[in-house]
């Protein structure tokens, strides 16, 4: 029973990182109907930049975190300017946008590879000194709690921002109908650029938390979360922020529970993709998504 509870708690921690990653992924999709496959590469570069700031520039993780998040956000602006903005008015924009985001992902990954090398790197041992708490037979470290707190703070902050702020409302207006938003005097291109900034900043933050949690980062670490992130946003409903958060948690839990039940990690990802596949066929709008024709 304790082991089961422990697994649930672990699932919650990793699920919150998945959720944070997926929120940024789904935000861009919700606004532009474009799948940004460079998001995982920004995730990687965010984590590795924070590492560089801690290791080489000698900052603490609490200083490095906001700087790395900002840099990840700037990468988002770059993505928009180079890969998405030029294609925006093409008829096949969803298709060409997908391809150009793949191109950017390849280039980002090659930069990570060139700068950091192909090996696994980790934050120095004293970056965070976690306290370990045990109660009711469950072990929780302060690092894990901090990760969940940061992840949820960012996700709740984004939700509130989209709901109440003027810019947030503009983002939702562009998501609803780009042409109408333009007619209403919203500076659509600036709003889209800003959306990319937020999305990538959140992706970078997820990369840092991921690196701290697993204590291992490499230039291809984005690939391991890329497909999971897709599964999460489909599960939650493409473009739905609460759906991405719930999907992330559900995904984290399903992962640890599959391992706990089958006793091996071999089938961990199989469950996820089987679920993704089933949802696409049975309820393409996702669990929390609004229903509409699945036409991109």
């Amino acid at each position: 029973m304790n082991l089961f509870l422990q697994q649930l708690v672990n699932g919650l921690f990793i699920g919150s990182v998945y959720g944070l990653f997926a929120v940024g992924y789904t935000l861009v999709f919700g606004v532009l109907d474009i799948l940004n496959l460079a998001h995982p590469a920004v995730f990687t570069l965010g984590g590795l930049t924070a590492l560089w700031l801690v290791e080489t520039a000698g900052l603490t993780i609490f200083q490095a975190f906001p700087i790395a998040v900002l840099i990840a956000g700037l990468l988002g602006l770059l993505l928009d300017r180079v890969a998405f903005a030029p294609l925006r008015h093409r008829a096949d924009t969803y298709f060409s946008g997908l391809i150009s985001s793949i191109a950017m992902a390849i280039m980002f990954e090659s930069v990570a590879l060139g700068v950091f090398g192909a090996h696994t790197v980790r934050f120095p041992a004293n970056t965070v000194t976690p306290t370990i708490w045990r109660f009711a037979g469950i072990t929780v470290t302060s690092l894990q709690v901090e990760i969940v707190l940061v992840a949820f703070l960012l996700m709740v902050g984004l939700t509130q921002f989209l709901k109440h702020s003027r810019t947030g409302k503009a983002i939702r207006a562009v998501a609803e109908n780009e042409r109408m938003a333009r007619l209403l005097g919203i500076h659509v291109d600036r709003i889209i650029a800003f959306t990319f900034f937020i999305s990538s900043a959140l992706g970078g933050a997820a990369g840092i938390l991921f690196g701290l949690y697993f204590d291992a980062m490499s230039p291809d670490m984005g690939r391991s979360i890329e497909l999971k992130g897709l599964a999460v946003i489909v599960l939650g409903g493409m473009g739905s922020i609460p759906g991405a958060i719930a999907g992330g948690l559900a995904f984290g839990l399903s992962e640890v529970l599959t391992v706990a039940i089958t006793g091996t990690s071999n089938l961990r990802d199989a469950v996820a993709f089987a679920v993704l596949f089933a949802i696409l066929l049975l309820r393409p709008s996702g669990i929390l998504g609004r229903s509409r024709m699945r036409e991109a």
């Binding site: 109907d33 799948l35 969803y94 298709f95 997908l98 497909l227 897709l230 599964a231 489909v234 071999n266 089938l267 990802d269 199989a270 993709f273 089987a274 993704l276 596949f277 696409l280 066929l281 393409p284 699945r294 036409e295 991109a296």
Partner: peptide
Amino acid sequence: RLRGVFLAMATLSFGEVVRIAAIN
């Protein structure tokens, strides 16, 4: 029946299931 990105994702997850099956 799915279009665009959704077809891409469905075929992608099919591919992953095949890969995982081959591993197991």
